[in-house]
Design a protein around this nucleic acid. Structure first.
Lengths: 219, 219
DNA sequence: GTCTATATGGCGATAGAC
DNA sequence: GTCTATCGCCATATAGAC
């Protein structure tokens, strides 16, 4: 880790001596992360193997371990990467209250296009329920953060009088998260027959006094 | 399978020559099923090993395979057994409509006392999302059956005018199942801070006009 | 940076003794 | 009914050549 560049030259070659080897290594890392993501998504962490990942990028298993010191380190890198991407999607948008909830509906729509990512989190979050699992702490932290964010949103919605009477922000947050998680399992088992965004919208409209139809309807 | 008795002499020895070996074998099978249940619960099917199971009952791995021909057969036996037990708990009670929904609240309370079983279904349902998983068809069938049962209940509740306006039985069923599934993950990650029955009750009271407090409140 | 080779160990399953 | 022994395979990780 000591002398690897923090990021690839994303905006284009840095002009001058581009030190091609660095860029190539970083590109390789990205390839590996993408492959690992796919493998962990469909098989989970424990059942997914380094060889599966290596094969996908045309490396041997030993060659792969040159880029990541261990399987566990690879998992951590995958989780960190997807987290950064999703934080950019959701939280950096600085959405609050109703806007954040609408953002969640959009996120659900988006999830519909990436079964791999949905699968990754379904399988890993269930697997990591075991305190011995390498991602256990990660998921505890993640759920805390997500719940906190959504509790804030519901609290704000309540302050503006858009929450139906008797609905507690904390309970609403837990239920919304559970609903989204649970829908994913049903959806992964049978994509065609489950309208995830539709169900989330229905739930939100049941506990608030607002409308949540996504911009482009289910047409 | 050809000459194994269908069931153990549950009510007591059958009087006369009890053919002790049969009873002993059947008892062994039950022990094995209980152990397999524990192992699959915490590690999932793919990561849980026959040796783990064998160790728990003081057998070698080979000895275990005398009772079940393969790992897959063992999984199937575990699932079938738990299914029979849960059908007895829920459906044999002939509950309909509101009673069935109240039964689900009770079931959630009960689940709170058996993290092992909850873990089994969380991990396996996520794992089995992969079409190649040996339990894939099982879970598709299971969700179909559960959903059908709950849709019926909500339909009946609607007929009696206890469903809030705008709530569709099908959507309500999907959401309720998703909620229950999703809550389990949060609960398994941090038992203490999640009141599963409370959240289920809150949801049911949000979409119906009935009260659902379980008999013995959360006092 | 990637390879081959290897160490080390777990897996599910089978054969056959007792 | 349970064991030991073994097969064949796959796993993660390391050593060292190129």
């Amino acid at each position: 880790m000591t002398d690897t560049p923090a990021a690839a030259p994303a905006g284009g070659p840095r002009r001058g001596r581009a030190r091609g080897s660095y860029a190539k290594t970083e590109a390789r890392r990205q390839e590996i992360l993408a492959a690992a993501f796919e493998v962990f998504s469909t098989s989970g962490y424990r059942a997914g193997s380094l060889k599966d990942v290596a094969d996908k990028v045309g490396l041997t298993q030993a060659g792969l371990l040159h880029h990541f010191p261990s399987k566990e380190a690879l998992l951590e890198a995958v989780l960190t990467l997807r987290d950064e991407e999703s934080m950019i999607r959701l939280s950096t948008a600085e959405a609050k209250g109703l806007d954040l909830l609408r953002g969640l509906v959009e996120l659900t729509c988006y999830n519909t296009t990436i079964p791999g990512l949905v699968s990754l989190y379904c399988v890993l979050s269930a697997e990591s329920t075991d305190p011995e699992h390498p991602a256990h702490a990660y998921f505890q932290r993640r759920y805390d953060w997500v719940r906190g964010t959504i509790v804030e949103a519901f609290t704000e919605v309540g302050r503006q009088g858009h929450l139906r009477t008797g609905v507690a922000p904390m309970a609403a947050a837990r239920q919304l998260i559970a609903l989204m998680d649970g829908l994913q399992v049903q959806w992964l088992l049978d994509n065609a027959s489950v309208d995830m965004p539709g169900e989330v919208v229905a739930f939100l409209e049941a506990i608030t006094t607002e409308k949540f139809q996504p911009a482009s309807g289910p047409a």
